[in-house]
């Protein structure tokens, strides 16, 4: 409770002193257990904020659309997304005031390693430090036969209705025009045929590879229950193993796919190495 009081106090202060024009946070939703993003612009609107189970959408997503100076109440994943957005020049550090806390809604994210905000102007709570990710789910899946893996993936992809909720809920998907919408030429078919769905999902996973921070916003947004985290986490694991890179932890390091080293692995070549 005390955490929420601190959030409100800070938000009121920022708004009252005109340091920011809007504070992004959560308010209670209309269904049990659900919270919904909330934009407080007046001091008395701050009272509507909550900080509890269900506050799990990635709020960093809204920063690229806001032109005003904003404060944002973040948990671990939101803060990591903000770091990536700053690094990719989508927002500036000055434009956003970060109120950082420890995630109040960890129930749905068994693999979360950074529940606590990694960047903040004002820190409201201290949580446990980072936890090592064992990638147990990915390792388990890799143990299956190639046929079983293919069958599983095809089945997941065939569920997709191409509503693009995964893309739109993702802070890393900020392209003004997404490859699925371009039609001159049309890069990917607009149908929900299995082929188009597979191409969409593979390309999506590649586009966010090295930038995805595994916040799970896409998984929660998907109405059809497609297991999107499987591909995301495979990319995460490979990036970590091959390039020794975990994105969204520091403003000083490059994103994995924006840099290279002379001795990067060439195992993927014919003949390998």
């Amino acid at each position: 409770m005390i955490v929420l009081e601190k959030i409100k106090e800070k938000a009121k202060e920022l708004l009252a002193e005109n340091k920011v024009e809007v504070v992004l946070g959560f308010t209670r939703g209309t269904l049990p257990g659900k919270c919904t993003p909330y934009f407080a612009r007046k001091v008395d609107e701050v009272e509507n904020f909550v900080w509890e189970e269900g506050c799990n959408h990635n709020l960093a997503n809204y920063l690229t659309k806001l032109s005003q100076k904003a404060a944002i109440i973040v948990k671990g994943c939101d803060s990591r997304s903000i770091i990536n957005l700053i690094k990719e020049n989508q927002i500036t550090r000055e434009q956003v005031y970060i109120i950082g806390g420890t995630c109040p809604s960890t129930g749905e994210c068994p693999d979360c390693q950074h529940q606590e905000a990694v960047i903040a102007d004002y820190k409201i709570s201290e949580g446990e430090g980072a936890i090592e990710d064992s990638f147990q789910d990915v390792l388990e899946f890799e143990k299956l036969s190639p046929e079983a893996r293919k069958e599983y993936f095809y089945k997941e992809a065939s569920k997709c209705i191409r509503c693009y909720a995964c893309r739109n809920a993702c802070p890393a998907c900020y392209c003004k025009e997404c490859f699925v919408e371009e039609n001159l030429p049309s890069w990917v078919g607009k149908t929900t045929g299995i082929g188009d769905n597979i191409i969409f999902h593979l390309t999506r996973a590649m586009h966010v590879a090295g930038r995805c921070i595994d916040c799970g916003a896409c998984v929660r947004a998907c109405p059809m229950g497609v297991n999107l985290s499987l591909l995301n986490r495979k990319m995460l694991k490979d990036v970590q193993e091959m390039f020794k890179n975990v994105s969204g932890l520091s403003l000083d390091t490059e994103l994995a796919l924006n840099e290279y080293k002379q001795d990067d692995s060439q195992k993927f070549l014919i003949g390998g190495e």
Binding site: F141, K150, F153, D238, L257, N258, D264
Partner: peptide, 19 residues
Amino acid sequence: LVARRKFALVKGLLEFIGI
């Protein structure tokens, strides 16, 4: 060199889904 990192991931991704 930039492509090299990307290709390494693509190769891994395709293998992962059983290709």
